[in-house]
Structures are given as C-alpha cells and as structure tokens.
C-alpha cells in the first residue's frame, strides 16, 4: 500500500511541479516592474508556507501512529513467537523457519559479522517489513503473516560481493496445517 501511495504521490507532485515551472518559464518575455511582483509573491508565499506546514503536520500525525518499532508490552500481551535471526556473509540463520497465518512473530535480528538488512518479501516479491541487522545490536521486527505461502528474506544492506545471494526462504502455513503454501 505504502509503495503504491509513494509512487502515485511522487508522479502527481513532480508533474504538478513541472507544470508550474513550465508556466513561469513561458511568462518571462515581457518585463514588468519587480516591486508589485515581490509584494504579491510574498503574500502568496505566506499561504504556500502555511499549506506546506499543514500538510507536513497532518502527514506526521497520521504516519507516526503506525510506527514499525517494537512494542515490548504489546508483543508480550499477544504471546508472539520469538524467532532469532542471525545474518552472516552471505546467508541467514533463523531459529525457526515455519510460521502460521495469524500468529504474531517477533524477529530478533542481529548480525554475526558485518551490517546486513533483514528484508521480508511476500510471494510477489513485494517488501513487507525490514530492519537492519547489526553486529552487537538486536533489532526487533514484529510481524503477523496474513496469507500462507513461501516468503523470502533478502539482504537489504550491502554486505560485500555475495550480497545478492543472501536469500532465505521461509514457509507460512494455515493454522492447523491445512495449507502447504501452494495456494
């Protein structure tokens, strides 16, 4: 969802910007006194500034309500399955590799050598969640799978020449074991 939103917003806003710049660029031939332009321009600028700040405040308000950062209390309340994830050049080691739909999972991610990036991808290779895997630190990602299937963990932080082979497949099944991940 966020990827789609980011794409649409960017295309629309950059196009709108291009229209503004092109419009102004076409209105340069006739010279008029600068003073009235400045006075009017500064008046418009106030509203432009207020509009931008308002959009930013609203975006901040709504986006900060959905932070991906670990909430230890919430995780404990839901009885999340704790999975230890270790990154190595160039593979992932997970304490568990099978999961169930609807089951909250707490990935405790670290690295045993250099920086890696833990990127969780669905069957359509869409990125669902991520965190950095760092030596000496454990970053926690909470995630609940909503569909069964084969998921991939890709390395998203450059870790040297085998970076692109650092892929791990995990399986998510329907609760009760009905699904083998093919549906």
């Amino acid at each position: 969802m966020y990827q789609q939103l980011a794409w649409i917003l960017t295309v629309v806003l950059v196009f709108a910007l291009a229209v503004v710049f092109l419009t102004i660029a076409r209105k340069t031939a006739r010279r008029v006194d600068y003073q009235p332009i400045q006075e009017k321009g500064y008046r418009i600028r106030k509203y432009w500034f207020i509009s931008l700040v308002s959009v930013m405040v609203i975006a901040t308000f709504f986006s900060l309500r959905d932070l991906p950062y670990h909430d230890a209390t919430a995780a404990a309340a839901t009885g999340a399955k704790v999975v230890n994830v270790e990154g190595y050049q160039f593979y992932w080691k997970l304490s568990q590799e099978e999961f169930y739909v609807g089951e909250p999972v707490q990935f405790n991610v670290t690295s045993m050598d250099v920086n890696h990036g833990f990127g969780l991808y669905d069957e359509n290779m869409q990125l669902l969640a991520q965190t950095q895997a760092m030596p000496g630190y454990t970053n926690v990602v909470d995630f609940t799978f909503t569909k069964p299937g084969k998921y991939q963990i890709l390395c998203l932080e450059y870790c040297s020449v085998g970076h692109h082979v650092m892929v791990k497949e995990i399986v998510v099944k329907e609760k009760g074991g009905a699904s083998d991940g093919q549906n």
Partner: peptide, 30 residues
C-alpha cells in the same frame, strides 16, 4: 539553472516521502 531548481524540488518530493518512517519500512534500500 532554472531547470536545476525544478530538479532540486522534484528530488525532494520522493526523498521526503521516503523519510516517512512507515514508508521507509517498505522502501528503504530499494
């Protein structure tokens, strides 16, 4: 020089979107 100002602001748009934590969670390092 005028085009470059468009480039600056145009580049700021996807950058600001990506600086939103929830977006960054699924777009960082893509």
């Amino acid at each position: 020089m005028f085009l470059a100002m468009f480039g600056w602001v145009g580049g700021a748009v996807p950058a600001i979107i990506d600086a939103t934590i929830v977006v960054n969670h699924v777009m960082h390092n893509t």
